[in-house]
Amino acid sequence: MKILVALKRVADPANHNKVKIPASGDRIDTAGLEWQINPFDLYALETALRLTENGKNPKKREGEVVVLTIGPKETETNLRSALATGADRAIRIEAVDEELDGRLVAHALAKIVEEEKPDVVMMGKQVVDSETNMVGQVLAELLDWPMATFAATIQEQPDGLLVEREVDGGVAKVKVTLPAVVTVDLRIVSPTSVRSKHTEAGFKYPYEEVRFAPLPAIMQAKKKPLAIKNLSELTPDLKSTTRYVKYEAPPGRKAGIKVKDVQELVQKLATEAKVI
């Protein structure tokens, strides 16, 4: 199986409360926050690796994993770290972050899919900075491919993927015939969530979340192929159709009071907050 994994860099999600919005409101200042791969996209990469290996022998790739990002040269650092965890090669589409929106990214990905012909395009269910959740769905429609969004478990079957999706109030089960687009949710990285046809039933990955790259792999990753494309060549006639006109900080919330015991809490809720 050949899987194309789309990665986006985001400012350190653990420190999103440190973003600053200048008085002019013309931007969100993330200075001082380290660039990282969107956590959900890292989960997509882990999922792609699990689908292209026998879980008992994760060093040998049964298939191919190609990672892709759209952005300036610095994003190659993020691609190299993805290569170090096991991806085979990388593609960077040269673009300036500010000129992108989800629609444009989906069109650019569709062009890459035409060239690469992967069996699956995989990415996170949302990006945690701009909080968008659209590229996978738009891409699937542009390609006329089936999609499984918010995937919590995936099992490879002879003719496709069996996917359990996180939906409001429960879990929806679908089967997609390849090629298909898959976007992944949090629970996809549990030790038994993803099983390729090479991995035996009952196998449990010996870690939570995602694998780390050993040092030799980080060195080897420098030698793995990284191709560069230009957004203007892939989508010459398209421009972003989304424009942010203003940003603002949300109203702050002040800390309230500490109550001494349960009785006082109930009394405050009844007489002061009037919510019970």
Binding site: A11, P13, H16, N17, V19, I21, I28, R103, V128, D129, S130, E131, T241, T242, R243, Y244, V245, K246, Y247, E248, A249, P250
Partner: peptide, 20 residues
């Protein structure tokens, strides 16, 4: 139309306009 969207885990609001 201007759409107000929470971003960055609710630490910012962005106001966006679309042109399609």
């Amino acid at each position: 139309l201007t759409f107000k969207r929470p971003m960055f885990a609710g630490n910012a609001f962005g106001y966006c306009q679309m042109s399609t």
